[in-house]
Design a protein around this nucleic acid. Structure first.
Length: 589
DNA sequence: ACTTTCTCATTAGACTGTGATTGT
DNA sequence: ACAATCACAGTCTAATGAGAAAGT
């Protein structure tokens, strides 16, 4: 069962409601900055060692690291560490003190800008100190992890409209949920992996006039847990890199006083904007010496940012949720029309890609659904089986080398300069990642990947030890942990048929909006009306039964063209259908 | 014949957004 | 006026057990 009971499975870590308002809002500006990394994730098709094969020739700089399988570059990112970048490294260093080895200057450097909300609720200062990105890693932190955001295409779709996440007293799961793939970890070292949701900006938000506007100051004194430790923590690097790390069980609540399952719930405040962050902390068995370097790595994906709400405000968001969240399937009034829609109109960034990029291909299953619940599948078939199927089959259109090489991923930034330069120009849509071969694109992330240390955060304790949690053995019943993942010649996500308009959108975003984002806190929601149309699709689906489904809803382009996901074809018939779907996809002609 | 493994059906409960109601 | 809460119905998940198939 899901819910709290589920935690038992793992060691527990610590009315027409204003239709005129709840309507699509202008597309939120920047989806993300671009970056361009290049490389394919599994190029060797080997087992355990796959993460350590020699990187592609394009590799540069840090990529030379044995742990850096793919070449990457980071430059021009919206969130560069200097110049007041929104998500500059200061985000971390301002709120997180460096571990041993760092001078206290780190904190002082931010002066009054340093803010640490209770419960680890933080947000970066408006301006940052410079050179933070160059802060060297503590000694001993030799391995640099790389993080890939799963479901990135989906996240981006939500992000365009300013993602909203429902929070309830009993706790509400996130959708999309956070899912990551890690690389570059020490196979034998142990790590704690957890997510922290921090206040993303100092404002209180309100949905008015079809868009989000700031409305006063945020309450930065919100009490409550802000951390969610992955139930499988601590575990080995091999374990974490084995398959997607899903945070699907993470729940968001506005119930500060809730006592039970606090570990599974993150307490947030409605109408506040939040930014999830992934922390990877290398731990040492029996480590009690807090002075030791926690070897913490923090990753932030701007597209994960969201506004907590108790009721959806933007109907576009609602529709996206309905279209992609299998649990909301009941609110889709017309699946059939979705299936029959022209292939080209299916914009949903299906991870499997098959649904969007394979003309004539039968929709076997819901890509995002699969992606989202992949870890819930009893046998994790995807990672142990399906995923091993060479993806060179004809289901995928030939992948241009460039495309194939464009992966989104974040590599913990270390040492600032050098190879870590993002190339905005290479941003092309964002149909990467997800469940199948992970399309990876470097994120516009700032130097947030810099090593961090939270002296006042519950995370601090995690950083040092094993906690009470025993080593959890992931329930992988089929396949071998290290069953080889044949090197795909390409990643479906990268090949998803991205409508030109979408691409254009992405480019535009990168080119302009992104810049805005980097400049101020409130720029994130800068409207880009023109982009709204971009998502427009030809698919005609009967949606909302509610008054909301008025012209406004019907005009919601975002949804119509995107609702075509495998979820629709996902059979209720459980495993068989699921499996078949997978196989049907990978074992194409 | 017995055990193990697999497939499938059943079912309780979790999850979803909706819409009405309540609270501020 | 607006946010928060609740009950609701549709859907999905995952546990369970029965039966069949395969292996010893």
């Amino acid at each position: 069962m899901l819910g709290e009971g589920e935690s038992n499975t793992f060691p527990s870590p610590k009315d027409a409601p204003r239709p005129e308002e709840r309507r699509k809002s202008p597309v939120v500006g920047a989806d993300d900055p671009a970056m361009a990394g290049s490389a394919s994730r599994y190029t060797d098709g080997l087992g355990p060692d796959r993460y350590y094969i020699s990187p592609p020739s394009k590799q540069t700089g840090d990529m030379a690291s044995p742990c850096s399988l793919f070449p990457y570059s980071q430059s021009g990112t919206v969130y560069t560490g200097s110049g007041g970048s929104r998500y500059s490294t200061s985000l971390h260093f301002s709120s997180v003190l460096p571990p041993t080895g760092f001078s206290s200057a780190g904190r002082n450097q931010f002066g009054s800008a340093y803010q640490l909300g209770q419960g680890g609720c933080l947000y970066p200062p408006y301006s940052t100190g410079s050179g933070i990105g160059s802060v060297p890693l503590p000694s001993g932190t030799g391995v640099r992890a790389q993080v890939y955001l799963c479901n990135r295409p989906l996240w981006l779709r939500f992000h365009r409209h300013q993602t909203e996440m429902i929070i309830t007293k009993q706790g509400r799961r996130m959708f999309p949920f956070l899912g990551f793939n890690l690389m570059g970890l020490n196979l034998s070292a142990h790590y704690n992996v957890f997510v922290e949701v921090m206040l993303a900006d100092p404002n209180h938000w309100r949905f008015q006039g079809g868009k989000w506007i700031t409305c006063g100051k945020a309450d930065n004194n919100m009490q409550g847990n802000k951390m969610y430790v992955h139930p499988e923590s601590p575990n080995t690097g091999a374990h974490w890199m084995r398959q997607e790390i899903s945070f699907g069980k993470l729940k968001l609540t506005n119930n500060k006083g809730g006592s039970n399952n606090n570990a599974q719930m993150i307490v947030l405040q409605s109408l506040h904007k939040y930014q999830p962050r992934l922390h990877i902390v290398e731990v040492t068995e029996g480590l009690e010496d807090m002075s030791s370097d926690p070897k913490t790595q923090t990753f932030t994906f701007p597209e994960n940012q969201f506004i907590a709400v108790t009721a959806y405000q933007n109907t576009d968001i609602t529709q996206l949720k309905i279209d992609h969240n299998p649990f909301a399937k009941g609110f889709r009034d017309n699946y059939d029309s979705m299936y029959t829609a022209p292939e080209g109109d299916r914009l949903t960034p299906s991870p499997t890609g098959s649904h969007q990029i394979v003309p004539g291909a039968r929709y076997a299953m819901q890509p995002f659904f699969q992606d989202q619940v992949i870890n819930n599948l009893p046998q994790n078939r995807f990672y142990n089986s399906e995923r091993t199927v060479p993806q060179t089959n004809s289901l995928f259109s030939p992948q241009p080398e460039d495309s194939a090489s464009q992966r989104w991923f974040i590599s913990m930034q270390q040492g600032g300069a050098g190879p870590n330069k993002l190339d905005l120009s290479s941003y092309e849509g964002d149909y990467s990642s997800s469940m199948l071969p992970y399309g990876i694109k470097s994120l516009p992330l700032q130097n947030s990947h810099a090593l961090t240390y939270y002296p006042d955060s519950p995370f601090t304790s995690m950083a040092a030890g094993w906690g009470s949690r025993g080593s959890y053995q992931r329930k992988v019943t089929t396949g071998l942990p290290w069953s080889p993942r044949p090197s795909p010649t390409g990643f479906p996500e990268d090949q998803l048929s991205v409508p030109d308009k979408d691409k254009a959108q992405g480019e535009e975003i990168n080119g302009s909006s992104v810049g805005n984002i980097a400049s101020t806190w409130t720029d994130t929601h800068s409207s880009t009306p023109g982009l709204e149309k971009a998502d427009s699709g030809a698919v005609v689906c009967k949606r909302r039964r509610t008054p909301l489904s008025g012209p406004g809803t019907e005009n919601s382009p975002t949804v119509k063209g995107e609702g075509l996901t495998a979820t629709d074809t996902y059979s209720k018939d459980s495993s068989v259908s699921k499996s078949m779907a997978y196989y049907s996809f990978y074992t194409g002609p």
